[in-house]
Design a protein around this nucleic acid. Structure first.
Length: 470
DNA sequence: AGGGCCTTGAT
DNA sequence: TCAAGGCCC
């Protein structure tokens, strides 16, 4: 008997572990919910619920292939071995999975692989989260790229040479008859992700619709948070309900040569998918990132202000900066935030409130339905100017200017900050010069002053680092 | 995937 | 006054 262990690859299509197992013989599948380990990763409840709902749908889809999926309620990664102990009497020959790159996940796999080897059970794992496997790209001096643009260039070159291979849906196997052991059945979640569908056909339909109807305007409209102009596929990529190869193949199929034109919407979306690969490759090349070390070592010397009251105002969306508050309220109420706004609120936390970027990183993980360590860490370190290919320290978003530029008529602010809904589109971006007070909070900091403080914080850290070198 | 501040030259 | 451009952080 072959056993496919599903983790962050919760799909039937383009699933190499499933395909390989079924090619070898009769196959069963396993998923173990580990809420205590998820909690240690700060995984958002809404993401946990999406996973629980998704694996229920996956169970039905696998049933169509006569592959039984065992949904087990576990606790921590350390205790997964006991689930396998109960399954081995079924005569498991080999365990198949797709590699994950975070530290605890790697340790979990390593210890399980070692234990299985002692039991005489083989281990098979594929490297398919990225389009090209981490470690397979090196620059001129034999190291992983630290800058996105040359990485992308190399990536596109390889994509042109090799294309992308999407695995077909496996053929159904003959029904398997099993005497299953007593396992704790997986619990259902809190249904907080109910606004996001979980069935394969719906996910694929959204991908198709995006590539057919929306991607051509992506370059122009993706930065406008009031519009629904982004793909909204990130939650599915994060849990592997959709693979990046499926995205690429569909994109190529729908837009054809447009993908070659660097100004097309399709190529801009492609670039976002390459960013996803980039940050996973970065994580594998510099595993200490998982311990929350800044990539640029000298930025570890920055003395953050870390004011808890200001942090709370940011978390709750009560900073007095309308676009920042609208964005945080969107996150808190839906578990998702528009990408442009992720940059705006991250810049604001770090460079206006002078709060450690790791506080923001953790808060995002604890709330995002699409939380992914590599992308989230990469994004925060970009915004904080501490990362690979980061924004320069002096790039400091003006939250009011960003608001005027990307939410010109205030539609997004009106939706999420109802106290301001009646203001004109001129007043709504900075509502503090108005005679009437309403319930909207005063601005918690002065941007112009805060900006100067940021420049000083980075100057001091750089000086300290220079002194240490002498 | 910035913005503050200054200069310049057109209104 | 103010848009445009350059320089700087």
């Amino acid at each position: 008997m072959q056993l496919v262990w599903f983790r962050s690859d919760l799909r039937v299509l383009d699933n190499m572990a499933l395909t390989e197992a079924m090619a070898q013989g009769p196959t069963i599948a396993l998923f173990v919910a580990c809420p205590q380990s998820w909690q240690q990763h700060d995984m958002a409840p809404v993401k946990q619920d999406l996973i629980r709902r998704r694996v229920q749908a996956l169970q039905q889809e696998l049933a169509g292939l006569n592959v039984p999926l065992l949904l087990v309620e576990g606790s921590t990664y350390q205790k997964i071995q006991s689930v396998f102990e109960q399954l081995l009497p079924l005569g498991i020959a080999r365990v198949y999975s797709e590699a994950e790159y975070e530290l605890r996940e790697r340790r979990r796999d390593e210890s399980l692989q070692n234990w299985l080897a002692v039991q005489g059970v083989a281990w098979w794992q594929c490297d398919r989260q990225c389009v090209f496997a981490p470690g397979s790209f090196v620059n001129g001096i034999g190291a992983m790229y630290q800058v996105y643009t040359p990485f992308k260039k190399r990536w596109l070159q390889r994509f042109a040479e090799q294309g992308v291979q999407v695995l077909a849906k496996p053929k159904p196997q003959a029904p398997v008859v099993l005497d299953l052991p007593e396992l704790t059945p997986m619990q259902s979640g809190d249904n907080s992700s109910a606004d996001w569908f979980v069935h394969q056909d719906e996910v694929l339909q959204q991908l198709r619709r995006f590539c057919q109807q929306q991607v051509q305007d992506y370059k122009k409209l993706r930065d406008v948070p009031a519009l629904d102009a982004t793909s909204r596929l990130s939650p599915y990529l994060a849990i592997g309900a959709l693979s990046v190869r499926q995205c690429l193949a569909r994109l190529q199929f729908e837009v054809g040569v447009d993908l070659q034109q660097s100004e097309s919407g399709a190529s801009v979306w492609l670039s976002e998918l390459i960013w996803r690969d980039f940050y996973k490759h970065v994580l594998v090349a510099w595993p200490d990132l998982i311990k929350h070390q800044p990539f640029q070592a000298e930025t570890a010397a920055i003395v953050w202000r870390n004011d808890k009251t200001l942090f709370q105002a940011w978390c709750e969306g009560n900073t007095g900066y309308p676009l920042v508050d609208a964005a945080m309220r969107q996150l808190n109420q839906t578990g998702w935030m528009h990408n442009r706004l992720r940059m705006v609120v991250a810049s604001f936390l770090v460079k206006d409130l002078h709060i450690d970027w790791r506080w923001g990183e953790q808060y995002f993980m604890s709330r995002l339905i699409d939380g992914d360590f590599a992308a989230n860490n990469g994004g925060w370190q970009w915004a904080a100017s501490t990362g690979t290919d980061a924004a320069p320290y002096f790039r400091i978003f003006n939250p009011v200017t960003q608001s005027e530029r990307f939410d010109p008529d205030g539609a997004f602010i009106r939706k999420w900050v109802p106290e301001l809904a009646k203001l004109s589109s001129k007043q709504i971006h900075w509502p503090h010069k108005l005679p009437i007070g309403n319930t909207y909070p005063a601005a918690v900091v002065d941007h112009a002053k805060a900006r100067q403080v940021t420049l000083e914080l980075f100057r001091q850290a750089r000086q300290q680092s220079d002194d240490a070198d002498e």
